[in-house]
Design a protein around this nucleic acid. Structure first.
Length: 593
DNA sequence: GCCGTTTTCGGCCCGACTGTTTTCAGTCG
């Protein structure tokens, strides 16, 4: 995708400028351009064909010219020039924790370091010793950091980070007697991958003054007493059983690496500032910057302790108060990416977002007929038990032999079983479904006469990933045109940290879906989250419905629905945009079942 | 480099922790 290619160039230029010590605000604007390009649903080349690039807020004349040059020539001369100004391996050094641009610049200029290998060598030979400001501890940290970068396997998946965070919160509640604890950061915003886990704790003390009008620094509490309590909480944190290494341990902040390699930061804040701190540490940075500029226009100042008019604290106990001080409604964490949510909130046009309670069923599940681990009955009972009204059993089709895909006879047998299960159940239905393979030429793995017997047809790609973008797109559109196809499964086939998405022109798919009234699946498995948040939002704009499915192969995986919901919320989707917020009857219309 | 219902120049968020420091720079979020 060309947007991603250009975004990487802008990010790389920003990295180089940091090492070269250029104006931080200029660097920031380069990073912003990269983010804008990544978040753009459409191809920047297509966009540039009909719009001036500099009309995009955040992209000015200078960046637009760079982008245009690349679109026209396949080259960006500023990028090439900047690349030559640092050793090619030096950028990788930025990934080492606690090693930043200033240090790297000195390593290059004073010691001739060019990459990770030469840095390791210099450390081994003691060549860094005696550098002013870089002592034994810093060198030791570098060594550890290099080992960490080498073992690094990518960002942590939402589905791994959330349970880990919950476990730590439970342990802190137990060992430190804390009541108010929340996940913050990108994990709270529900990003599909997370750099590190942020947790926020409020000090618990019944004697604490709660007078909102007092700035926190004028609390009756002696500072040393607060510091002592904070330190105690942080010490408890760094001694939790899951902690493998302590990275920092202060009065209000601690940082550990867990045994599974995750960095977890804990911050302790006064109770009366909990909302301000939660808002602040949830981010995103871009969202906060926007709020701060809104505050500045009103003569207010926001920091992690509250909202202040001069010395007077006017908000901070909860997040609602922070937004209210700016005359804004509460903005859900999943929207806080500076993608228009602050403006929408100001105009009272925030969408009503999908919630777990709106979900009436799961539209993607497997049973023992294909590669699932549980029977139709077991899957049905488990779904009914969590309060669903239906589940679609969507076994693989015969082409997908590795996953036990079933042929027409087996499908018929399974459908008869589903009929029997449904006959015995009240208020709950099993939908007769399939996840039918889209074959290489776009045709489907079952004939129309077979598909028309089913309540719910997901069509998915499971092979021939290496096609060109245009052929892959045609292949999927061919399937969309089949009137029996209700939904396209995991559109891009990506596996986070493991497999790149196959190339597909998303806006053409969306157009085709819109034309043929076909839904897109939001596969809720944390490795997939496919379609992603950006595509969700595009689908909504085009009026396409989204079906959240967990791809459950066992009943326990119904719980993955929450990650799908989070992603849908990030895509601004509400109950009206989600197919499985509809009642069961919606899926049975037109069928005999 | 970007932006402007005060502005075309001057601002762009800011506090905690660490290490190597005699008062602060670098890193991080």
């Amino acid at each position: 995708m060309i947007n991603q290619d250009i975004a990487i160039m802008f990010d790389t230029m920003a990295d180089i400028m940091e090492i070269r010590g250029e104006n931080p605000f200029r660097i920031n604007s380069y990073r912003k351009v990269a983010t804008i390009l990544r978040d753009m649903p459409e191809d920047i080349g297509d966009f540039a064909g009909s719009h001036p690039i500099e009309k995009i807020p955040g992209i000015g004349k200078s960046s637009a010219a760079k982008i245009r040059e690349y679109l026209e020539t396949g080259q960006m001369s500023d990028y090439q020039k900047r690349l030559k100004s640092v050793p090619p391996g030096a950028l990788k050094l930025l990934e080492i924790p606690d090693v930043g641009p200033k240090t790297i610049a000195r390593l290059i200029d004073e010691k001739g370091i060019t990459d990770m290998t030469s840095l390791e060598e210099a450390i081994e030979k003691g060549r860094l010793e005696g550098m002013p400001g870089i002592g034994a501890k810093t060198i030791q940290k570098m060594k550890k950091g290099i080992a960490f970068v080498k073992s690094y396997k990518g960002r942590i998946l939402l589905g791994e980070a959330m349970p880990a965070a919950k476990e730590i919160i439970a342990a802190l509640k137990e060992h430190a007697g804390l009541k108010q604890l929340e996940v913050a950061g990108s994990l709270r915003r529900g990003r599909e991958t997370i750099g590190d886990v942020d947790i926020l704790a409020a000090e618990t003390d019944t004697n604490e003054p709660t007078n909102e009008s007092l700035p926190c620094s004028r609390s009756d509490q002696p500072d040393h007493e607060k510091a002592r309590r904070g330190r105690h909480i942080i010490k408890t944190f760094t001694r939790l059983p899951m902690c493998a290494e302590t990275l920092a341990e202060g009065d209000t902040k601690g940082s550990i690496r867990t045994k599974s390699g995750m960095q977890v930061d804990l911050r302790v804040v006064p109770k009366e500032s909990f909302g301000a701190a939660l808002q602040y540490f949830t981010g995103s940075k871009e969202h906060n910057v926007k709020l701060r500029s809104l505050a500045a226009e009103r003569g207010l100042k926001i920091n992690e302790y509250g909202v202040f008019r001069g010395e007077e604290k006017i908000a901070g106990k909860d997040e609602e108060s922070i937004y209210a001080s700016l005359d804004l409604p509460f903005i859900p964490p999943q929207l806080r990416e500076d993608r228009g949510e602050v403006e929408a909130a100001g105009a009272d046009e925030l969408p009503k977002l999908i919630e777990q309670e709106h979900i009436k069923g799961d539209l993607h599940a497997h049973c023992t007929f294909s590669d699932g681990a549980m029977t139709v009955e077991e899957m049905a009972h488990a779904a009914a038990k969590i309060g669903y009204r239906y589940v679609a059993i969507t076994d693989h089709s015969k082409n997908l032999t590795v996953a036990g895909g079933i042929d027409e006879d087996e499908l018929k047998e399974r459908n008869e079983l589903i009929d029997r299960v449904n006959a015995e159940t009240d208020g709950f239905s099993v939908l007769k479904g399939t996840e039918v393979d889209i074959l290489k030429d776009g045709s489907l793995d079952y004939a129309d006469s077979v598909l028309e017997e089913l309540d719910w047809v997901i069509a998915s790609i499971h092979d021939h990933f290496n096609m060109s973008e245009s052929r892959m797109t045609e292949r999927i559109i061919y399937a969309i045109r089949n009137p029996h196809v209700d939904c396209i499964g995991h559109l891009t086939g990506r596996l986070l940290n493991r497999r790149e998405p196959y190339p597909v022109t998303v806006h053409e798919i969306i157009e085709a879906c819109s034309e043929h009234n076909t839904a897109l699946e939001l596969n809720a498995h944390p490795e997939r989250l496919d379609i992603n948040d950006i595509t969700c939002r595009e689908a909504k704009k085009a009026g396409i419905m989204v079906a959240i499915g967990t791809d459950a192969h066992t009943a326990a995986q119904y719980g993955l629905m929450r990650f799908g919901i989070t992603t849908a919320r990030r895509g601004w989707l509400g109950p009206g945009d989600i197919l499985n917020a509809k009642p069961c009857g919606f899926f049975l219309q037109g069928h005999d079942a």
